[in-house]
Design a protein around this nucleic acid. Structure first.
Lengths: 168, 168
DNA sequence: CGATATGGCTAACAACGTTAGCCGTCAAGC
DNA sequence: GCTTGACGGCTAACGTTGTTAGCCATATCG
C-alpha cells in the first residue's frame, strides 16, 4: 500500500460520502487528484478494487465503534449511529454482493463479533438481530418508512423483544 | 395503458428476472421487441418509468401472496418465498429510493396491510418485524450470511421472539 | 552510464441513456 | 376522396461511463 494509493482511496471515500456510490467515477476521482482517469489504472486494476479498499476501511471503522459498546442496546445504538453518520458508505458496504476476494480476510467477522458476544454466542439469535438492525437501518436510509414514523420506538420494540428469552 | 406498453413492461420484467436490474438496458429491451432503443421513448419518457411499472406489478403480486396468509408465520413464509422466487425483482423493488411519484397510490400500503393486521394494529411492532423480515431476505440474497448458515432456524428464532408479548 | 520501474499523458473504444429529426401507415374530418 | 394528424417506427448523434493501448518523463539502481 503506497502513499499515493492511500490518497486515492481517501478521495474515493470522500466522493462517496458526498454524493453516494454513483458519484464515484474514475474521471471524478482522477480530477480530485489532478490527474487523468487512465492514470488511476497504474495503482488499481479497476474501479471495483478502489471500492473494495473503501469498504475495507469502513468495515474497520464500524467494527471499532461496535467494540466500544457493552450492552446490546449500546451496540444497536452504535450501529445505527454509524449508519446515519455515513449513509452512503453504509449502503456501499452493506448492499449488493460483497467483493470478498478483494477484502482482507476477517473484516466481516470482526464487525460481527461484538454482536455474537452480546448474545452469549447464540448464532441464530445473532443473525436474527443482525437482520433486524440492518433492516431498520436500510429501510430508514431508503426512506421506506412513512414520514414521521417513530423509529426510536420501533428500535426499542425490536430490542425489547429480542431481550426476552424464548426457546427456539 | 396500451397494448404495446404492456408488452414492453413484460419484456422489461423478463430481462430483470433473468439478469438482474442491470440487465435492463434500453437497447436490450428494444432488441427483445425487435425495434431500436429510441422507439421505446414513444411509449415511456425514460428508463425509470419502465422500471416503475415493473415495480408496481411486483408490489401487486407480493401483496396478493401476502393476503392469502392467516398467521404471522405463514405471512413470513410467503414473504420469504416471494423474495427467493424473484430475487432480482425483490431487490429492484426493495432497495434504493422508491420512485413513488411514478407508482399508483396505495401499492405500498396494500403490501404492508397484511402485516399490520397480523400484529393487531401495533405499528411499531409491525415496523420491527418488517425490518427483521427484509433484513433476513436481503442478507440472504446478497449472500451476507456464512455459507451453510441455518437460516430457517434464524427465521424461527426471530419469529418466536416477536410472538412473545412484551411492553415497549 | 544505461536499464528498468514508476507514474503520468492522449487517443480511442464499446456500451449506456437520451435527443433530434425523418418517414410510413392509417383513421378521422372536411 | 383528400388531407391532416397522431402513432410508432427509424438513423444519426451526443455526452458520460469504464477501460485499454501505447507513448513519454523521471528517478533509482546495477
Amino acid at each position: 500500500m503506497s502513499e499515493r494509493t492511500d490518497q486515492i482511496v481517501a478521495e474515493a471515500r470522500a466522493l462517496i460520502e458526498e454524493g453516494g456510490p454513483e458519484a464515484l467515477t474514475m474521471r471524478a476521482l482522477a480530477a480530485r487528484l489532478d490527474i487523468r482517469a487512465p492514470s488511476l489504472y497504474k495503482h488499481f486494476p479497476d474501479k471495483l478494487a478502489v471500492e473494495a479498499q473503501v469498504i475495507a476501511i469502513a468495515f474497520g471503522e464500524l467494527a471499532a465503534e461496535l467494540e466500544k459498546t457493552g450492552s446490546l442496546s449500546e451496540l444497536a445504538a452504535a450501529y445505527r449511529a454509524y449508519a446515519l453518520a455515513h449513509p452512503h458508505l453504509y449502503r456501499l458496504m452493506n448492499s449488493g454482493p460483497l467483493p470478498r476476494h478483494l477484502l482482507p480476510a476477517g473484516v466481516e467477522d470482526r464487525a460481527a463479533m461484538p454482536l455474537v458476544r452480546a448474545v452469549g454466542g447464540d448464532e441464530h439469535l445473532a443473525r436474527a438481530i443482525w437482520a433486524f438492525a440492518h433492516g431498520m437501518v436500510i429501510l430508514e436510509l431508503d426512506r421506506r418508512f412513512p414520514d414521521g414514523a417513530d423509529l426510536d420506538r420501533a428500535w426499542r420494540t425490536g430490542l425489547a423483544v429480542f431481550r426476552e428469552p424464548v426457546q427456539h
